[in-house]
Amino acid sequence: MSFTKFSVSALALLAVSATAAAARDEIRIVGSSTVFPYTQAVAEQFANITGAPSPIVESTGTGGGMKIFCGGIGEQHPDITGASRAMKASEYELCQSNGVTEVSEALIGFDGLSMAISRANEFAWDLTLAEIYLALGAQVPVDGEWADNPYTTWDQINPDLPAVEILAYGPPPTSGTRDAWVELAMHGGCEELPFVHAGGFDGDWVKENCSRMRTDGPFVEAGENDNLIVQRLEADPNAMGIFGYSFLFENLDKLKGVLIEGVEPNTDTIASKSYPVSRPLFFYVKNAHRGVIPNLNAFIEEYMSDDALEAGGYLSERGLVALADDRRVELQDAVLNGDAMTAPE
């Protein structure tokens, strides 16, 4: 595998940016808080193996990372961004308008969007998507009308649930985790409501009316640092947190996963897609920086290595659900050869 497959436009951009970009020694990476621990693990492994400066990895959120990444080429702009969803068409257009015309997309594996609670909470939590929506959606059915959410305790939604206040800490709107949670959990739960079935409402109605999280207290935006959510769950045994499975995996001594539709979040259920809230994880490489930013090519090689990505590799040990072997090989060839992504639909 090699780094020789570049288009004429990428080579032109590389030549223009070479003088400026070469002034920076460290690789710079931004993006998703969910992808952050995987990229950080690769950065540590890379530095240990090569002795090169460890890449600077910042947790900016997927949306924030895309904005920074697509700002342009040259040393003042990052080389890679992590994402807990695919790049949007609007973000691709932003990249193109700022001269970032050659980008490689890497789907590195899969992750589950976990709801977690302290192990000090002894209740066996098992929620349906509809119950999750009724707890956290800004508007819900009330006496046959679509109205502001009145529920304050879990037993008001289902008498079999504890009579404790609804409190969930989760990601802000700039986070890819938030985007994926809304699409997979909130829309999925809304679609399960009898009100929606009986009303004959379609997907467009659901997207317009079921995308907003509550702002009256039971849902709290906790920023891009998922470790802060873990700390808050330790402090309040009745509070729940929403984050990528990797953070639950790394804190299983303190937290336990909330079952969704009877299914526990773990690597097996996420890989089999039996766990209903799972999503792919990505990173994006600015091809104009390859061969310009010192050690960037070698870092990409480490990220694409079997040691990192295969089942049983060091990223799977941190909670990443690995791609099937054939998909992994296809990914490695495309990214190492610098294949540029096409415009998202």
Rank of each mutant, 00 (worst) to 15 (best):
M304L: 13
A89Y: 00
I166W: 10
H197K: 15
Y245V: 01
G170S: 12
G65E: 07
G109N: 12
L184D: 03
S17E: 09
I80E: 01
W181T: 15
G203S: 13
V220F: 02
K67M: 05
A239H: 09
H187Q: 14
L248W: 07
A239W: 08
F46Q: 09
G64M: 10
E192A: 12
Y169R: 13
A288N: 09
L233D: 04
N48T: 15
T101Q: 11
A41T: 13
M304E: 12
L281K: 01
Y92D: 05
D111P: 00
A130H: 07
P280Y: 08
T267A: 08
V335W: 08
N251T: 11
A124L: 09
Y275S: 04
D126G: 03
P294H: 09
I300E: 03
A15H: 12
A288S: 14
L296Q: 03
Q40D: 11
P276E: 02
G170T: 15
G188M: 11
D143M: 03
D236K: 15
S9M: 07
C95N: 04
V196Q: 07
S175C: 09
A288D: 11
V285Q: 05
E261H: 05
E234L: 14
L127K: 01
L336K: 14
D236C: 03
N287W: 04
L13V: 05
A271M: 04
A23K: 15
D326Q: 08
P294K: 10
K88W: 04
L161A: 01
A340N: 02
L248Y: 09
A41N: 10
F3Y: 11
G72D: 08
D307C: 01
D307Q: 13
Y169G: 09
A15Y: 09
C70D: 05
D253W: 04
F110L: 05
G72Q: 07
W181D: 09
N287K: 12
F123G: 01
R327T: 02
I68M: 10
P172K: 13
G51E: 00
V42I: 15
G223V: 13
G319F: 06
S7M: 02
S175P: 10
Y38A: 11
F283M: 06
I108F: 06
L107Y: 01
E250I: 00
W154M: 09
E330I: 11
E208M: 09
G109D: 12
G244Q: 01
E330T: 14
I56S: 10
H77P: 00
S84I: 03
Q40G: 00
K273N: 14
L113R: 02
M1D: 00
V16Y: 08
F123P: 07
L228C: 05
Q156F: 02
G189N: 11
D25L: 10
S97L: 06
N158F: 01
A10K: 05
S246L: 00
Y38F: 15
I108K: 07
E264Q: 13
E208Y: 02
L336R: 13
P141C: 02
I27Y: 00
D333T: 14
A340R: 05
R212K: 15
A163T: 07
A343L: 06
S17R: 14
I132Q: 04
A86T: 09
N149D: 02
T101H: 04
E310F: 08
S305R: 03
